[in-house]
Design a protein around this nucleic acid. Structure first.
Lengths: 212, 212
DNA sequence: GTCTATATGTAGATAGAC
DNA sequence: GTCTATCTACATATAGAC
């Protein structure tokens, strides 16, 4: 068809891709700021004005990218979930399941100490409702839960994780340790390095407070 | 002096005491409502209107009792701390320190499952600042920490608590378990009774996830 | 001390020019 | 898509009658 000759012959796709990349980069900067503020102050205390100020754009511009504060926060939660999935992907599945679980717990604590782990939304938070209807988040959470659940039952079968505990209790415990305030408490005491803190909390989590 | 004859001869003190008791009872009802709402929604999401509605008085009346929302919440935190002190008082100090610590952890979990355990205020919450300048709260917290700390070091000396853990790490862990979201997760699953949930979380806390 | 009514600040969200 | 300026709702806190 002759009409195709009307298109500019040079770089039409790259130009559109460039603008898309700018758009995505901007959104990534927004999500990063939201992620940090969510971890620092929580959903209720975080204000959209703060997000706009941190990103360096007007608040109205934020609403061109995300229709509400809940969607803003949900995007950050989805990205954290994707980071978790990527971490799971990178693990050597030939290692014993107990070691895999321990590595996952260690990673979540590193993320938290880096100030990048949003705390769990409380049960009646408006964010909670937004997340339960967010397919990307729910799918990611189920995927992560399935993979961890398989390692948990495998570890219980081989006798390295306490088989008396329901697997779901172990799973929830690992999720809770990702947001454990003990890390912040110990950090605030100023007596220990991040590595020491993580080793202590990993020890209490897997070995318990009692002597062995 | 003859002027004393002008006083009514019957029950002057009881009348004043009665009004004081009414006053205290009203304040106790307020603090109970605040305590429940703090546990349910957290400080930022709780509104003074809700408190007034739950108590059944006008919002302005609340401000005759407590000068600010922070003071309102602080009063509830102080009462929780007093309940903790009273629980510690009632324990049999002749029991092994590990058992004492376990009983304390069990009690905090019972309080949480009863919907009466306020979650810890985040680091930059306005409630945090109010609490650090509240003598009753700080004194209560230090008293509880001292008593638990003594049991922790005693348990470590007799070899029942892991002596490699700094006592402060053990203390912070016990505080964190009092607000552990795992209890709510397991409760929300609808599969376990309160007793089962507490046993599971006590097990993960003291015995760890690993098999023994 | 309790109430109704209101002041005051601030949050999420939008209008409309460019 | 970005901005300034604004709307609207609601939360903390107060005024003032009784």
């Amino acid at each position: 068809m002759v009409s195709t000759a009307l298109k500019p012959p040079t770089e039409p796709a790259p130009k559109r891709s460039f603008r898309q990349q700018m758009h995505l980069a901007r959104e990534d900067a927004i999500v990063s700021a939201v992620n940090r503020l969510l971890a620092e102050k929580g959903f209720e205390s975080m204000t959209v004005d703060e997000v706009a100020a941190e990103v360096g754009i007007a608040k109205a511009s934020l609403y061109k990218h995300f229709p509400s504060k809940e969607d803003l926060a949900a995007a950050a939660m989805v990205r954290v979930m994707q980071r978790a999935q990527a971490f799971l992907d990178g693990l050597d599945k030939n290692r014993p399941p107990l070691q895999l679980l321990r590595e996952v717990a260690r990673w979540t604590m590193e993320v938290q100490l880096a100030g990048e782990m949003p705390s769990l939304p409380s049960e009646n938070s408006s964010l909670r409702a937004a997340l339960t209807t967010n397919k990307a988040y729910v799918d990611g959470l189920m995927d992560v839960s399935d993979r961890l659940g398989a390692w948990i039952t495998a570890a219980q079968s081989e006798g390295s994780i306490n088989p008396d505990l329901p697997p779901i209790a172990v799973l929830y415990t690992l999720y809770a340790r990702a947001c454990d305030p003990v890390l912040g408490f110990l950090k605030g005491s100023g007596q220990y390095s991040n590595e020491q803190i993580i080793e202590m909390v990993l020890s209490t989590c897997f070995d318990g407070l009692k002597a062995r």
